[in-house]
């Protein structure tokens, strides 16, 4: 199993300094599973970017209210390692392009306001 994963990894990425214990399965493996909604995907981002991506007073950029196309471009650039970062390349490559688009729909629908000023629903 691990060897197959590693092979997948070498075929698809082929760059980066991987630790011996690193694992990466391309997201296409899950393409036939039911879709994960933009909200379920997006709520995974809150530990760094705040509830609903609405932290506006930290160095992590807010995602709430981000323009849909900007979000998609950024995430695809992270995913394809066009734009090098410390963390986001590894985060973005877990998602299919469709999942990135669903997250973009979710975050672009949220007002660009700090969480404190947002309504709950």
């Amino acid at each position: 199993m691990k060897r197959i994963l590693l092979l997948n990894l070498l075929l698809t990425i082929g760059l980066n300094a991987w630790a011996e214990s690193d694992i990466f399965i391309p997201p296409e493996r899950y393409a036939k599973d039911p879709a994960v909604s933009g909200r379920v995907l997006g709520d995974n981002c809150s530990a760094c970017h705040g509830t609903r991506g609405a932290v506006f007073d930290e160095s992590m950029p807010p995602l709430a209210g981000m323009d849909r196309d900007t979000f998609i471009k950024l995430m695809k650039d992270f995913k394809n390692e066009v734009r090098p970062t410390i963390v986001m390349n590894d985060v973005a490559k877990a998602y299919t392009d469709e999942e990135i688009e669903r997250m973009a729909d979710y975050f672009s629908s949220i007002p660009a306001l700090p969480w404190k000023k947002q309504t709950l629903h």
Partner: peptide
């Protein structure tokens, strides 16, 4: 240091899709 883990539900199980540690 950072670690990036992603877990999926697939074929009736929780599967570790990705675990990547920041380089040393």
């Amino acid at each position: 240091m950072t670690i990036t883990d992603t877990f999926r539900y697939h074929d009736g199980k929780i599967e570790l899709q990705e675990t990547i540690q920041s380089p040393v």
